[in-house]
Design a protein around this nucleic acid. Structure first.
Lengths: 315, 315
DNA sequence: ATGAAAGCGCTAACAC
DNA sequence: GTGTTAGCGCTTTCAT
């Protein structure tokens, strides 16, 4: 392995001169610069980035902690982050946690071990109390709202969005409204329930199907829901794929959409768009984009990203 | 910043002992180990990973070069890579190239600069000749077939897959078959054309619509295709989202699927599944998975991943 | 403008 | 078992 010393010797200069050339310093004579560059070219030398990162104390790399990567919602955020990072000459390392507290903690450690300049939490498993101390070692920003001053966040006002959606449904005359969610313990599930409560009152337990992530989950949910004695007339799904599954099952059972059953999805994904399902777009790509800006500026701001409802033919 | 020297002093031992404790060496007395661990705990010490990477000469990180990340096909590969990497305690850094040769080269440099142990090319912009030299600095594996011995690859036999698809269409009585592709210069576009040629002969130029990536592109393509004097009776799309767009446009024009128009998509994505579109699944997740295994083992093998056709109701 | 040398934080060969 | 010490490959004062 050829290193900076070898280059210095071959070029007949000192290592500091080589370093200066490498970093485009001004005060290097043209001759020396030339000869250094020539040697570098000849031996095909590339500086060791680990040594540079060690000494500089930064890596121009951010880590993105997310539970799963095969999830359209997280892919959208990741997409926003990647685009912004690329523009700013930063790299991003994807850190899948599967909601394991231990894994997540391991990833946060890497901030402390100087591998990342910052970390974006697309979702989290640990309590804020255990996460916050790590913000001493680099910028931590969250894609969900938190009041903690140490953590910047780029978020969508989900409570308000859910409220809007349920109100829309109510306005259209629905009073038997069911909904699906992903993780039972997640904040957005809690917010969905709260918003429901606000609009329709306490949700009947069989009107809430959790652990829905994909098309099939949606169909299964619809199967249960549509058999209920008091059949819901509308379903709010936690994603467009799930909504698609609901749509398909309902159709297969000769339900007319939206007359017999209204469906609203989330995130404006292709599977919903293809079926003409009304959806609420939380602009996750933009959420990711703003999140990256926050880490970049080591900012602790709270950036609210607007959402909007895209009305199609399923309501 | 507290480092290994501080720990050594505080624990009253030498740095090597601390290092031994850190790396779980056996020959350390229990007392010293205890006291070191205690100090580490007290001062909340975490080793600097850059220093370790520098000295070890490896980072347990692989880079994945892909053109775009907001593309379901590349997301599938990435997904496979991430799962496998996670299992093996490797990290993955996503490197979006937008098919820029320069960017791609920059990323390959990082192999040489010791930032990555290996690189997976989900797609490439440069010639193999310019890529191959980098394989001296780490394992490079490709997700497309190449005969080069220096490069391992995990790939789908696309030519054969396209052949199968066109033959299926022919067998069903179609002789006016159109198709869509993404990049005109890509290998899979070439292979599509070759396979078409084999089955139906030279494709009429207006039967090939390129630059199709999303739903809308599909609809636009269908619009052009269905207006043709000699209207195609079948369309082979380069992805299920595109296929979905074709489907929707055709439906909107009162075409019956599959009687008036047969459609086949690719990659078994939700948008196709939702519409009941026949698709050929190249198992991109598995392609990614196998690709990671190859980098991990620094193998130059050629792993062919099987594809299969999922028949639904659009043919 | 240039070089010597100290140091970034760690590992590992060597000696005891 | 444990400590000393020489690196890993680079940046950056501080002289000159």
């Amino acid at each position: 392995m050829t290193n900076i010393n070898d280059i210095a010797k071959l070029a007949g200069v000192s290592v500091s001169t080589v370093s200066r050339v490498l970093n485009n310093y001004k005060y290097v004579s043209d001759e020396k610069r030339e000869s250094v560059l020539k040697v570098i070219e000849e031996v095909n030398y590339t500086p060791n980035k680990n040594a540079i990162d060690l000494i500089r104390g930064e890596t121009k790399t951010v880590g993105v902690i997310l539970p799963y990567n095969n999830n359209p919602a997280f892919d959208q955020m990741l997409n926003g982050i990647l685009n912004m990072a690329s523009e700013n000459d930063y790299s991003v390392t994807v850190l899948p946690s599967k909601y394991s507290k231990e894994k997540e903690l391991n990833y946060l450690q890497r901030l402390k071990s100087k591998l990342f300049d910052g970390i974006i939490l697309a979702s989290r498993a640990n309590d804020w109390e255990t996460i916050i101390p790590y913000s001493n070692y680099g910028s931590i920003v969250s894609c969900e709202y938190t009041y903690n001053n140490e953590i910047g966040c780029s978020y969508s006002d989900r409570y308000s969005s859910y409220l809007d959606t349920f109100q829309l449904l109510k306005k259209r005359g629905h009073c038997a409204v069911a909904f699906t969610t992903a993780r039972l313990e997640s904040k957005s599930t809690k917010q969905t329930i709260e918003a429901y409560n606000e609009v329709f009152g306490e949700p009947p337990s069989d009107y809430h199907i959790s652990d829905c992530r994909c098309l099939n989950d949606g169909s299964e949910a619809a199967k249960k829901l549509l058999r209920l004695p008091k059949r819901p007339t509308a379903i709010y799904a936690n994603g467009d794929e799930v909504a698609g599954g609901i749509y398909l099952y309902a159709k297969s059972q000769q339900f007319n959409i939206p007359n017999d059953l209204a469906i609203i999805g989330q995130e404006n994904q292709p599977s919903g768009s293809v079926l003409g399902i009304t959806t609420v777009d939380h602009q996750l790509t933009k959420v990711g984009k703003e999140a990256f800006k926050l880490v970049l500026n080591r900012s602790q701001e709270k950036v609210k990203v607007p959402y909007f409802i895209i009305e199609r033919d399923s309501v």
